[in-house]
């Protein structure tokens, strides 16, 4: 891949990378870090891409993975309890009420506890609005497998968030 193609990729996919990272991590600063991480890694390896690459799949996959890793790493470094996600969401969304911020935080926390493919499929389906054929191409599985991953992810998330979900209806 030449330098020009690299810059075209940044222009074409940069916004989507930021949007996914922003949603998964819950902060603009995290989104900037992940955008940098994703494209810097690509820049360093750009000469090694000689065969055609499905950039859409590559960048979605890489971004989701890095975003989940980022949240995990940040949580470990800060040694914070689940309340951390609450404040993280609330900081960036001052207008949201505390309950909504708590739910968003808990969903982020729960997402990173899912098996990787389940988290990927849930994010692509419910945060990016993709259908099963699109998800299957990105994740590298069949459509029926993507469907199973989404169903399991939803069951897992409901289970992981049970304590906060059952308090009162949203």
């Amino acid at each position: 891949m030449g330098d020009e193609q690299f810059h075209q990729l940044v222009a074409e996919y940069g916004g989507r990378v930021l949007a996914i990272a922003r949603r998964v991590c819950g902060s603009a600063e995290a989104a900037l870090d992940i955008h940098q991480e994703v494209f810097l890694a690509l820049w360093k390896r750009r000469r090694s891409f000689s065969a055609p690459v499905n950039w859409n799949a590559y960048l979605y996959r890489t971004t989701v993975r890095k975003a989940l890793e980022y949240v995990q790493k940040q949580r470990k470094e800060k040694n914070l309890d689940p309340e951390y996600e609450k404040t993280l969401s609330a900081d960036d969304n001052p207008d949201n009420n505390a309950r909504a911020a708590e739910l968003l935080g808990r969903l982020r926390q729960a997402l990173r506890k899912l098996p990787r493919h389940q988290a990927q499929v849930f994010i692509l389906a419910r945060l990016e609005g993709m259908d099963y054929p699109q998800i299957a191409k990105i994740v590298g599985c069949s459509e029926s497998t993507a469907r199973v991953h989404l169903h399991r992810a939803l069951r897992h998330l409901a289970h992981l968030m049970r304590d906060v979900l059952e308090r009162e209806p949203v």
Binding site: G15, L103, R108, L127, G129, L154, R155, M161
Partner: peptide, 22 residues
Amino acid sequence: EMQNVLRTAERMKAEPLDASLP
């Protein structure tokens, strides 16, 4: 509970991205 998870995900999806971020 599953429906609440989906509603929360919808809210997450709707979170605005700062226009200056890109």
